[in-house]
Design a protein around this nucleic acid. Structure first.
Lengths: 239, 239
DNA sequence: ACGGTCTGATACATCCTGATACAATTTTCC
DNA sequence: GGAAAATTGTATCAGGATGTATCAGACCGT
């Protein structure tokens, strides 16, 4: 394949499709963006496509239906955009043969990472599909299930996390002990750069602490580095 | 990181090294220029460096060798200066883990652009990482836990350190007996250069002494070198 | 001993962070 | 579709950490 992969984005919402296309183009990816399955069929005839990013919910031909069609007629990898983190969507998604899926609202950076992972997998051949990785993190008294996006404590009590809290926590768990600036955290969790006097991260940290810390006033897991940012202190296990 | 990145230029040719250093300094970059890998190692111990510009062809330790060493022991980005536009150089350069390379003769403006690009990348995309090894320092009656950033005395009493105090103490403990100027300490603790009449370090030293010295009026651990700076006098164990 | 320079200590100004309240936005539900 | 709920972003204040100004005393060379 080429140095720059060619991605076909299929989504009927312009406000999702176009920013996503711009984002991908800024990151060494050639993009064709269309608004319907019909337009996608046309684009596939006109150019070589390395991967399709496909919204499930679309008027006209449905995303699942189109995905099934792609699997029957081609080997092009597919990443589905699912409206919400619902099991039904995932299961159906896997049944129709998608390679991965991302739940809306999605982080463009995360989607890009998954695109690259899927392409890498597709290139390294063995055409069998790997199951989508569901990682579990353990720290302090918590277990974090990345597939369900919630925290479970020793006693089995479930604490739900919002999308932002979840991303922040994962960004920190992936880099234990490392100081991450607000700018970096904003990039990792929202895919954007900090505005002057941007306190969004501080706020999200404060909210996350209220959920994971025993005493949010004296945080022991998510600690502040004055003038530097935040970092995760404490033992992290991945499994 | 700070507003002004600190670049270490390593090249044995003075007629390349010095004009390059002057050019970079005119463009909001702090520069340390040295002529050998050995001198570079020394500079890396004395200051925080954000990026290394490294000539491949050098007498003594070779640039590629030094680059490999940097990659094994640090995360500092490296830009290689290769003698000519040969594929072999490029390939080897990437193999040893350089972030970018520039072929001589190079345009300083282009090099500066690449420096900024590499630093931006390094900042915005902190890679996933294993936990940083938690080091413990022992000196006098104190134990310093770098993972929690606090001091514990013989009796188990905990003395919290601020970020600035912690960094100052670690900078000194890592170089026991060595005299460090205010300029060096400011670089090591804040990543910036001293302004005229800058007393920030004096002040931080005074604050740290109040916490670690038995008699802050007669310091025995963190001593002053008149006209030179400060140094750590006590016995230090790392473990 | 003397004057200039450097350092320690104090007081205060400034910058950074945590918390709260509320506004804007997005998502869910009907 | 649109309303309600949840999530996220912004403004503001209070408290803590750090930087700056200042003065008094220590150090150095003469």
């Amino acid at each position: 394949m080429d140095a720059t992969p060619h991605i076909l984005v299929v989504d009927d919402h312009r406000e999702i499709r176009e920013p996503l296309a711009r984002y991908l183009e800024r990151h060494e990816v050639r993009v064709t963006a269309v608004e319907s399955a019909a337009a996608a069929r046309h684009a596939l005839r006109a150019a070589v496509v390395d991967l399709v990013v496909l919204d499930i919910m679309m008027p006209g031909e449905d995303g699942l239906e189109f995905c099934r069609h792609l699997r029957e007629t081609t080997r092009i990898p597919v990443i589905l955009l699912t409206a919400m983190a619902e099991d039904t969507d995932r299961i159906v998604g896997l049944e129709v043969g998608a390679d991965d899926y991302v739940t809306k609202p999605f982080n463009p950076r995360e989607l890009l990472a998954r695109i690259k992972a899927v392409i890498r997998r597709a290139q390294s051949l063995p055409p069998e599909r790997e199951p989508v990785s569901a990682v579990m993190w353990r720290f302090d008294r918590w277990s974090l299930h990345t597939d369900r996006r919630d925290l479970v404590d020793d006693a089995g009590v479930v604490t739900p996390l919002s999308t932002g809290e979840f991303r922040l926590l994962v960004a920190l768990l992936e880099r234990p002990g490392m100081v991450l600036s607000r700018d970096q955290l904003l990039d990792l969790t929202r895919g954007r750069r900090a505005a002057p006097y941007d306190r969004a991260v501080d706020n999200q940290v404060s909210r996350l602490r209220r959920k994971i810390e025993r005493d949010p006033g004296n945080p022991e897991l998510l600690t502040t580095v004055w003038g530097g940012g935040y970092r995760f202190t404490g033992k992290v296990e991945r499994g």
